[in-house]
Structure formats: structure tokens, C-alpha cells
């Protein structure tokens, strides 16, 4: 873990001193604002309200508005992590200091997670607005944000790995978007395939179902284990890649 703290600070600095983080946050907030506006309109016209299909459920994964930005914005957050250091050559000065590869990888991943969560922070305002119009169960809000964290962690970890695989930011962006989209579509198999092991697998992998459960306050440990595995595996691969650059 040696080197974690200075690298973490520098990565966060790089996000917020270059306009990247602000552009992404702006795009994301604009998108979620539109999402929220459409939800408010739709719920205002609804005649019947159901307990487990309220606005919180709709906002956190009830429709495709939740997933679409993640497929693009998570890779955009992570694309520069390693690709830029390798393009500019700073990876050489970085890795010749007494830092551990694990420290480097975790510092970069954590900084990207902080940027990702900073992107979600403004959405808390929508919950406050919803609270004015009706009752909010804060525990359900909590599990919803747990879903945001879990899904984000695996996408950010995957993006971190792709940024180490690809030498260019653009290739890293495209690769991670494709893989994230692939995972997302695989999950949709749950609604398409016939009964059988394939459908079971798809249901297990489905972020849609995961968010559906969490936004209703259901915490299934299998989902969390899956999130954890899908986060740790890419980070492990990234760590091996960094070691390979050092000794290749």
C-alpha cells in the first residue's frame, strides 16, 4: 500500500484541476435532471400510487435513464488513469519511486470512485425534493445508494483495468464501454431467455434486478458478493499489469 495517499491526492487533483470532472458532472447532472423532471411529470399524472413503484424506485434503476450514463460516464472517469501515464511516460517516474503496485492501483481506483460519487452527490437534492412531496424511507434511499456504489465500483474497476490494457484513452473508453454494455445486455437476458441455466446466470448478473431489489430496500448478499468479485478481479489484473511493466 506504500504510496497510496500521495497518488490518491494527485489523482483527485488531476480530476478537479482539469475540466474533466466538471464536464462529466455537468453532463451527468443535466441528464439526471431531465430524468427527474420526466419522473415528476409522470408521477404527477399517475392516478394510482403503488408502494414499491414509487419515485425512488423509478429513479434508481427503474428505467434505462439510470444505466445509460453509467455505460459512458464510468469509462470516461477511468480512461486516463493509466493510459495517460503511459502515453506521457510519467509511469516511469511514478514506478521508480518506492511505491507498491497495489498502492498505485488502489489509489487510482479510489480517486476514480470519489469522482464517481461526487457525480452522484447532487442527486441527493432530488431526494430532498421528493421528501417535500411525500414520505421518504431513508433506509430505502440508503440501499439505493448502496446499489449506486456497488454497480459503480465494478464499472470503475473494469475501466481502471481497461485503462491499463489500452495505451490510448480513447481505446480505453471504447473497450470499457463495450464490456460494460455487454454485462448490461447479458443481464437483460433474464427477461428474454426461456427458463434454464442461461437465464439463471443472466438473472444473477443482472444489474437491472440488483438495482430493482436495492431500490426497494432488499439487500441480497449474493448481489454484493458479485459486485465485490467484479470489482476485485479487474483490480487484481491491473495490479499484475503494473507489475509486468515494472519487470517486463
Amino acid at each position: 500500500m506504500r504510496g497510496f495517499w500521495p497518488i490518491f491526492k494527485r489523482e483527485l487533483f488531476a480530476y478537479f484541476v482539469t475540466p474533466l470532472a466538471f464536464v462529466l458532472i455537468l453532463a451527468f447532472v443535466f441528464w439526471q435532471g431531465l430524468h427527474f423532471y420526466l419522473l415528476v411529470r409522470s408521477f404527477a399524472q399517475a392516478t394510482e400510487a403503488s408502494i414499491d413503484q414509487g419515485p425512488v424506485q423509478a429513479f434508481f434503476g427503474g428505467d434505462v435513464f439510470y444505466y445509460l450514463p453509467l455505460i459512458l460516464i464510468c469509462p470516461a472517469i477511468t480512461m486516463r488513469l493509466f493510459a495517460e501515464e503511459r502515453r506521457s511516460g510519467t509511469i516511469e517516474t511514478l514506478l521508480t519511486t518506492p511505491v507498491s503496485s497495489v498502492g498505485v492501483v488502489l489509489a487510482k481506483f479510489t480517486a476514480a470512485m470519489v469522482a464517481y460519487l461526487a457525480m452522484w452527490a447532487p442527486t441527493l437534492l432530488y431526494i430532498v425534493i421528493m421528501k417535500r412531496a411525500g414520505d421518504i424511507d431513508w433506509r430505502v434511499v440508503g440501499t439505493s445508494y448502496l446499489g449506486v456504489l456497488g454497480v459503480g465500483a465494478q464499472y470503475i474497476a473494469l475501466g481502471t483495468m481497461m485503462s491499463a490494457v489500452a495505451r490510448s484513452q480513447l481505446v480505453a473508453l471504447i473497450l470499457s464501454s463495450i464490456v460494460i454494455l455487454g454485462f448490461f445486455l447479458l443481464g437483460l437476458g433474464e427477461f428474454v431467455l426461456d427458463e434454464g441455466p442461461a437465464r439463471e446466470l443472466c438473472a444473477y448478473m443482472s444489474v437491472w434486478s440488483q438495482m430493482g431489489e436495492l431500490s426497494k430496500g432488499i439487500v441480497d448478499s449474493r448481489r454484493l458478493v458479485l459486485d465485490g468479485s467484479l470489482t476485485l478481479f479487474p483490480l487484481f489484473v491491473t495490479n499484475r499489469l503494473v507489475d509486468a511493466w515494472r519487470w517486463g
Binding site: W5, S88, T90, P98, V99
Partner: peptide, 27 residues
């Protein structure tokens, strides 16, 4: 060790003092 690579790769978005502080902390 203090190492200066051939191409002298640096982080363009940092100020000189910030960069050196970061490097000192890393080391």
C-alpha cells in the same frame, strides 16, 4: 535513488512546487 528519465515526463497540469511536493511525498 533519484532517477531522471530521458524524456523527463512530467504532469503538465501541476505547478512546479506542487509537483515536487508530490514527488517528495512519494519518495
Amino acid at each position: 535513488l533519484g532517477y531522471m528519465p530521458e524524456a523527463v515526463p512530467l504532469y503538465p497540469e501541476m505547478r512546479v512546487r506542487e509537483y515536487l511536493r508530490f514527488r517528495a511525498e512519494l519518495k
